[in-house]
Amino acid sequence: MELLGQYNYWVVFFLMMTGFYVVIARGNLVAKIVGLNIFQTSVFLLYISMGKVSGGTAPIVADPGSLYSNPLPHVLILTAIVVGVATTALGLALVVRIKEAYGTVEEDEIYAQDDPPHGSAPALAQGSETATADSAGEARR
């Protein structure tokens, strides 16, 4: 196992960069949130990897003298997972609102509506109430 001593960390950083790439290269907001979640999970893996002790067991009292893995990272990551799903829910709710207001969840199309390239598109930013009503009408078809 000497050669593979840092394998966990390499994989963690590869996954982290995969999530980062999805966040910055994909234009779709739902895909961006998936990327953020991948990034987040890789941070969880980093912490849990650091808490592992070779030959240790789960930190639940067993026979006296057993070797336990470090419980502290586990606690921190438990908290982080629950907070993570709360922030994911918030992000997804924002995506739904953006879809209502702009009619799209593609970053480029949202930018195009905010700064019309030829100055001819309707100003959706100030009239978001009407835009919402319109897209609500479209959604009902």
Partner: peptide, 23 residues
């Protein structure tokens, strides 16, 4: 596999379950 059993079932329930359903 890394001995974090509490974290594992939270991740399976919350990460794999609730997050996927929300998405």
């Amino acid at each position: 596999a890394l001995d974090a059993v509490d974290v594992a079932f939270t991740e399976a329930a919350v990460g794999a379950g609730i997050s996927t359903v929300l998405m």
